[in-house]
Each structure stands twice: as structure tokens, then as C-alpha cells.
Design a protein around this nucleic acid. Structure first.
Length: 510
RNA sequence: UCCGGCGUAGCUCAAUGGCAGAGCAAACGGCUGUUAACCGUUAGGUUACUGGUUCGAGUCCAGUCGCCGGAGCCA
């Protein structure tokens, strides 16, 4: 501090976020970077940024030492500096604070910071992601993400769950092999993990209630605003939880987390332009629930509505056209510039939801919605199937009532005790969860039917051989969740903004 | 893998097939409770790359590369 006599050894270092009414009139020290410097001859407003928030120090030539003033004049955006000043109320902005500049130490003066105050394109920003992170919007999103981490950790800890860490190198797939990243493991081929679930199912034998939270790798060639090749997923598994316990746990967890964000991240939401009232409904449980069979009707109604609107047809004519299989529609759901004409067919039993279908479902509600009881055929081998009282497999009544041309070939009508949670405002699928199959014979049949390597699953089957219990679990994608909380539909946050260094198709630098 | 869009100054974008332009950033000067401050001056170009059509191509055609969005698949 010897270069600048005005620096005081006594002034305490404070984080900007922590500055409050208690600091009024006190001299404090801010350590960080110069975010902006409006002003000019005789007076500068130094926008100071330390990662926790932003505050301006008002520096005036006549009140400053010549050395300090020269430093203030010379520094450019993102110079690293230590500034001292007296805390006072912001004269214009109610409830905000500013500093009367009292001294500066320049650690590094910068004059050519690449990211200017003008707007930039995606490509440029992604190439400078390591610097883009410093922006007010980007850092606000990352603070929200950190708060979600904390909320989830608290939620699980308070309910007696233990965090376990599942392996990232895995010997084989629990689902398809086309979306796995291969790694050479000293001559053997292993894969980067797509899920810790199977390991969690073993871990509950030791700990009862667990969750894992780590990176998940999907080699899918997806290039959309909802996809990362490396994303973070929390997976919960609980012994003796039934399907309803599982759903209730999920909605309570989301409600708790959203409440936390509203409580602790109001400054960040404001920075992002995110309306807190859009999040408020999600703090109230229970969330609406919908069976797959009911969703069929809802989706087909939405498709009829599209035809009625785009073609000016009556409901009757639109229905006729949809079921003729010759209908087309203009889809601009995700791209305002390029409308596309697509075939529009009825949604049949056995179809999987596309993004527009999820949107049609979520549009009905102001909070997350669960869609449950999917056809067995379109879900993984570990899903427990719905049973009748006598233990036989249940045929869904909606399926039984459907005409044959509304069912895909090979459908049994059997359903699973699984549910997806679809976020509001077009957030898409955030959670997938289920009751796990604990009937040994049925599990074996499923493994065979999915043509999975039985050798690999022997250790997993031991969980059913020795002390088998009913259990349930789910996985939630961190980035999709945060993108919804931070962005919504009016002020969308892209999934690439939700993680410090996103890994996307053909995009792994910096 | 497929479909659509885009690629011009450091950045964001203009330019009927006919002289390569503006704003911001930068440098210099002026102004001042500023909120992407403002005003003036200066400087800034292999129009992604390769080939073709044409008297003439940033513009039209073909191919390549890169970026963005979407489909399938998924959280």
C-alpha cells in the first residue's frame, strides 16, 4: 500500500454484497475489478465489481491526491484494483449504496479488454467465455446456480439423505450405447457415465436414502437450447419409498428450492429481468398430475387447435384432417425466422413426447406438472410396472378404450410407475423418476427384452437377491432447472449460460 | 445424420450485379451525478475459403469450412 498514501491499513475489506446500512459513514475496502467508468474531467464513477455484486465509487479530482487521480484516469475496464471509500446512501437509487472515493491501489491497469459495453454475438462471446463470465448477467446466473446447489444440499441433508459419489468411468451402458463417450482405460473400453442410478440402488443397501450429484455425459448430436453434452444431474434413491412418496419428495424439493431463490436471489432475478411472480406458484404443492393416457387427449386437442388456427377450419374438419394423416402445419415453435412445414399426425399410444407436446402440456399450468404411467415399451428396464391387486400386469383403461389405429404396433397397454416432471414456461422435462422394478422375474425379463448384457448386471441383480426392498428415485438436470428459474419464457436464459464452461456439440473450448 | 438461417472493420450491422459504409470500441481533444454517458477529430478492409458465370461479384452459381436454430434422442 506504499504507493498510495491515502490507503488505510485500518479500513476493513468487505464484500459488496454484504454492504448494508450498518456500514454508513464507515471507510471500507473493496477488492475487485473495474466494471465501468462513466464520467470524465474532474469526476469519475468507478463501478466496482468483486463477484458478489456491484457498487460505484465516486472519485473527484479536487478531493483526491494527484497519485490517486492519475490512477483513476488511467485505468480501463477490468483493471484489477483495490479501492477504499466511505459508504453512503445512493442519492438517487432508493436502498442502494455508493462510496465516496478515498484511495486506490492498482494491481493491473488494463486498456484493451476484449468485451466492450456494446452488444456482442454468440460466437464471439463463446470464444471469450472465460471473460464473458464476468458480465453482470452471466455472474448473476452463476450465483443463482450456486444457491440451487446449496438449497439442494440442505434439502437432502435435512431429510436424512447421504450424498454418495458414483463412478464416472462405467463399464457399460444402462441404456442405449449410441450416446456414450468412449474412453480408453489402459486397453479396455469404458464409458463416461450417463447416470449413477444403478450404483445408487446399491448404495441404498448401505445408507437407506442417498443422492449423487455429478457430471453426466451424453454423446447425442443434439444442438438445441436444451442440450449439453456434459451436464450436472442430481439423482436420488430411497429405500421403502413408493411412487407417491417419490412424487411428493420431488415437488417439495422444487418448491423449497424456488422459495430459496426468491428469498436469497432477488437482486439476481432483478438483474436478469426475471419476474418473481412467475415463480411464486411453484412454491405451492401439490403440483398437477396427468397420466400418459390423459396426455394423449390433451396433445391431440392441441394439434386440432393448431389446424383450426392455421387453416381456419372448424373443429370437426380439423379433426377429420388430423386423423386422415395428411395434415401439415407451420412450426415456428423454436425459430422465429424459419417456419417449417411439418406433417401433423395424431399422437398415438406409444408415441413419445416431442418438445411441442411438452409445451402444450405445460401451457395448461402455472407450475411444474407430472406426467405419469407411460407405456412400458417406451421406458427403461428398471421401471416398475403397474399391477392389479392380484399381482398381474395392469392394462391401462385409456389404452383399452382406444381404437387400434390410435396405438402403435406391439403395444401391450401395460404402464410403468414412472413420472416426468415438465417445467412451466416451456422449460421442458426437468425430472425423470420412477418406482424401481423389485420383482426379480420381471426384472430379468426386462433385461432380456432390452437385450442388455446379463453378465454386467449380475452385481445389480444382487441388490434384488439379498435384502430386496421397494425403492424409488429420480434424476433432475441442474442446467435445465436453473435455466427455468433464472430465465423463464419472457427473458429466456440459454442452457449455455447456466454452466461456466458449456460443452456442446463441436464446442469444447475454452 | 437431416432440415433451415447466417458469415462484410476489433465488435454489432448496412450496401438494385456498378467507387467498401455507419454506430460502438481504439487514439487525441471537449463536456459532466454518470447508469451501454454524450460531442468533435483521426485511424481502421484478403467482404470465411476455393472455383465458376459476367465487361464488372460483398451481391448470382457450385463446393468446403465455421457459427446459430430446429428434428430425431434426451435431463
Amino acid at each position: 500500500m506504499s504507493e498510495t498514501q491515502t490507503m488505510s491499513e485500518a479500513a476493513p475489506h468487505v464484500r459488496i454484497r454484504a454492504i448494508g446500512p450498518g456500514h454508513l459513514g464507515q471507510r471500507v475496502q473493496i477488492r475487485g475489478w473495474l466494471a465501468n467508468k462513466p464520467g470524465g474531467k474532474g469526476r469519475y464513477f468507478l463501478w466496482l465489481r468483486d463477484g458478489s455484486g456491484i457498487i460505484q465509487a465516486v472519485a473527484e479530482q479536487e478531493k483526491s491526491s494527484p497519485e490517486d487521480w492519475e490512477a483513476v484516469e488511467s485505468i480501463g475496464l477490468e483493471s484489477s484494483i483495490i479501492v477504499e471509500g466511505i459508504v453512503k446512501a445512493h442519492p438517487r437509487n432508493e436502498g442502494e449504496f455508493e462510496l465516496d472515493f478515498a484511495g486506490i491501489k492498482v494491481l493491473q491497469a488494463v486498456s484493451d479488454y476484449p468485451i466492450t459495453k456494446k452488444e456482442h454475438g454468440t460466437e464471439f462471446l463463446m470464444k471469450h467465455r472465460h471473460l464473458w463470465l464476468r458480465g453482470r448477467r452471466q455472474s448473476a446466473i452463476l450465483r443463482i446456480r450456486a444457491e440451487v446447489h446449496k438449497a439442494w444440499a440442505d434439502f437432502f441433508y435435512d431429510r436424512g439423505f447421504f450424498r454418495v459419489d458414483t463412478p464416472i468411468f462405467t463399464p457399460n451402458a444402462c441404456e442405449g450405447t449410441t450416446t456414450l463417450f468412449e474412453v480408453d482405460y489402459h486397453g479396455d473400453t469404458v464409458y463416461l457415465s450417463q447416470s449413477g442410478q444403478l450404483y445408487n440402488e446399491a448404495d441404498i443397501g448401505a445408507l437407506g436414502q442417498v443422492y449423487c450429484f455429478g457430471p453426466t455425459f451424453r454423446a447425442e448430436k443434439s444442438k438445441t437450447r436444451r442440450h449439453l453434452l456434459e451436464f450436472w444431474m442430481l439423482e436420488m434413491e430411497a429405500a421403502f419409498y413408493d411412487f407417491d412418496d417419490n412424487i411428493r419428495f420431488q415437488e417439495e424439493m422444487i418448491a423449497f428450492t424456488v422459495s430459496r431463490i426468491l428469498e436469497r436471489c432477488s437482486a439476481e432475478l432483478k438483474e436478469l429481468g426475471r419476474d418473481p411472480e412467475k415463480l411464486r406458484p411453484a412454491t405451492q404443492t401439490p403440483y398437477p398430475r396427468l397420466r400418459y393416457g390423459d396426455a394423449i387427449e390433451l396433445i391431440n386437442k392441441s394439434r386440432v387447435a393448431i389446424l383450426m388456427e392455421q387453416r381456419g377450419l372448424s373443429e370437426e374438419k380439423a379433426l377429420e384432417l388430423l386423423y386422415s394423416g395428411k395434415a401439415t402445419f407451420s412450426d415456428d415453435t423454436y425459430d422465429d425466422d424459419a417456419e417449417k412445414t411439418r406433417k401433423l399426425e395424431p399422437f398415438r399410444w406409444g408415441d413419445d413426447f416431442g418438445a411441442p407436446d411438452e409445451a402444450a402440456i405445460s401451457a395448461q399450468y402455472d407450475r411444474p406438472v407430472f406426467v405419469s404411467n407411460f407405456p412400458t415399451e417406451i421406458k427403461g428396464f428398471y421401471f416398475k410396472q403397474d399391477e392389479e391387486a392380484d399381482g398381474s400386469l395392469r392394462v391401462d383403461p385409456v389404452f383399452a378404450a382406444l381404437p387400434d389405429d390410435m396405438k402403435l404396433p406391439g403395444m401391450s397397454g401395460h404402464t410403468v410407475q414412472g413420472a416426468d416432471c415438465i417445467g412451466p414456461e416451456g422449460a421442458g422435462e426437468m425430472i425423470g423418476g420412477s418406482q424401481r422394478e423389485d420383482n426379480f422375474e420381471r426384472l430379468m425379463e426386462n433385461i432380456e427384452h432390452h437385450q442388455l448384457p446379463l453378465d454386467f448386471f449380475q452385481w445389480y441383480l444382487d441388490t434384488r437377491r439379498y435384502g430386496n426392498v421397494p425403492h424409488s428415485g429420480f434424476g433432475i438436470g441442474m442446467e435445465r432447472f436453473v435455466a427455468w428459474v433464472a430465465g423463464g419464457s419472457d427473458t429466456p436464459v440459454h442452457i449455455r449460460e447456466v454452466i461456466t464452461f458449456p460443452r456442446m456439440l463441436h464446442q469444447f473450448e475454452p
